[in-house]
Design a protein around this nucleic acid. Structure first.
Length: 258
DNA sequence: AACCACTACAACCGCTCATCA
DNA sequence: TTGATGAGCGGTTGTAGTGGT
């Protein structure tokens, strides 16, 4: 006997809640005979006491042949991250590039894995900003001898740059909300560069480069990255993918690279 | 062993869009 | 042109399973 798991009472006699193996069998038989579509007639034809909507969902998310079960692989995760950056919550669009995965799978995965990071990364950004601010202050203190030499300069560009750096850092710490680990995080933590290495293979595999994939990558709120970081990252990808030329340019612009 | 927090997954709901009479 | 209907999509909710304390 199947528990009803707290689903609300069925309206108009239609069954709700978990599907039984018998129902699955009826639905699968119907689809094999008539093909996908005309979901509203499934109930009439098969005697299933389910709405057409429910039948479609069950087929698409569970019964359809070729569906993958089990955990999302790191490669698939890379695709999800990149495509979400491009298209946002267009789960069905993203799912088209992940054979065997449904929009529901991806939606669930994103929700459980990245929504929580959104919260924690905000804290992380504030912490980083704090550290950077302290470092800058320390650097300023450690240059008292140069202070006299550059007194006039300090009033000019250099001094401005330093104070601006602190100011921008404060601002971005409050405004930036990353939904997943940024490439900057990867660089700072010295962890293996998953993004640079793994994404290369799946780009080749799915031929998405022409869709501006790397443009999407660089549009991930990274326009505040230091030029050095961008160069490093672009060069890594040149080695791994050979697509450096595709970026078409100067990584030192600190942001969008097309 | 019991409790709690978290993740994975299944399924529903409301809304929008496309099609057709 | 418009209204009805079906299909699809994104958001949300609820339960089972699992691991940590």
């Amino acid at each position: 006997m199947v528990r009803m798991m707290g689903w609300e009472a069925p309206k108009l006699g239609l069954r709700k809640g978990p599907w039984t193996p018998e129902e699955d069998k009826l639905l699968a038989e119907y689809v094999s005979l008539h093909g996908e579509g005309r979901w509203s007639s499934v109930a009439r034809s098969t005697g299933l006491n389910r709405s057409g909507k429910s039948c479609r969902l069950r087929w698409v998310n569970y019964l359809r042949p070729g569906l993958k079960r089990g955990h999302i692989t790191p490669q698939e995760e890379g695709i999800i991250i990149e495509l979400h950056a491009l298209w946002g919550n267009k789960w069905s669009t993203i799912a088209r590039y992940l054979p065997g995965r449904t929009d529901n799978d991806i939606k669930n995965y994103w929700r459980t894995h990245f929504k929580k990071r959104e919260k924690s990364s905000l804290k992380q950004q504030k912490r980083k900003a704090q550290i950077l601010k302290l470092k800058l202050q320390q650097q300023q203190k450690e240059k008292p001898d140069k202070k006299d030499e550059t007194k006039t300069e300090e009033a000019g560009d250099h001094g401005k740059a330093n104070s601006q750096a602190v100011e921008i850092t404060d601002q971005t710490s409050q405004e930036m909300v990353f939904m997943y680990p940024t490439p900057e995080d990867q660089c700072l933590s010295q962890e293996p560069d998953f993004y640079a290495a793994d994404t290369a293979s799946w780009i080749d595999q799915y031929y998405l480069v022409d869709e501006g994939l790397w443009g999407g990558w660089w549009s991930l709120d990274h326009d505040d990255q230091p030029a050095g970081f961008c160069n490093k990252f672009a060069m890594q990808n040149q080695e791994n993918t050979g697509y450096y030329n595709y970026f078409g340019g100067d990584a030192s612009n600190g942001g969008y690279i097309f």
